[in-house]
Amino acid sequence: MGSRIGAFFFSDPRALRRFRKNRGATAGLALVVLVTLTAVVGPLLAPHSPEEQNLEELLHDNGLPIAPGENPAHPLGADTLGRDELSRLLHGGAVSMQVALFATALAVFIGLSIGIISGYFGGAVDMFAMRGVDILLSLPFLLIVIAIQRVVDRPELWTLFLLLGLLSWTTLARVTRAKTMQVRELEYVQAARALGMSRRRILLRHVLPNVMGPAIVIGTTLVAQMIIVESAMSFLGFGVQPPNASWGSMLREGQQYLSHAPRLVLYPGLLIMATVFGFNLLGEGLRDALDPKD
């Protein structure tokens, strides 16, 4: 990790050392970097269009897709509609990662803002915000997402990530609020207030950097959750719309062929597993490094 980035994330140099020594965390980081790279560069590397159907050449006479290796131009074979499996995996990964990252960014932004404001000002604002969190937490998450996606006339990718982002900031807000309440009472914050520093400056310069640690940790594990939710939604048919692919929708498309071509389910399944595993490892490692007391 470059020292400048390191300095941003780890204001405490010991934290960086702790992180480096954690083997699980570095493995997680490697996985995450790999997957993120695939998601960004993958579509450019894809040898074919992910939508192009070649039902004549890439399906056997009996309608089953060709297996890996049967056609050198298609190293991972074809899917059920005669499309290049490798290209679909690469494009699908990009979609899954996009949704997960955007949704998480949105959730982190909302969660941080509400958490800091609620924790710093307290009183009625706090009451109001935290009851909102209670209500959101009491709703069955997946069901609500499905219900809303169903009502939306034509569910699209951006409605999905908006929904996921808007519904999953609650834990982060709670943790941030607790941390903010703690930071608010520290001497230097008190001093800054006494010196007449503006509220905005106090919040941005003194409170925010102090609550970033937990936010990063929760955000990282949130990405993993979002990938799973996106897969589940696409698996159920409420995520990306055909002919676009995501790993979740590829799982669904392959399930009918489980007995004859299990690879159609296994490839996206393994990728989802690896990605989620990577983000979770990274999150754990970051937590250990940034907040050893917890």
């Binding site: 939508e51 159907q53 509609l81 048919g237 719309q241 002919p243 399930q255």
Partner: peptide, 26 residues
Amino acid sequence: GDTGRQYGEMAQADLAKIGLRISIKQ
């Protein structure tokens, strides 16, 4: 169901050859 979606996607690919863009409504 999957069959409906597959028919939808095949029609989508076919009609794209004459410039008709369709969305699948299941």
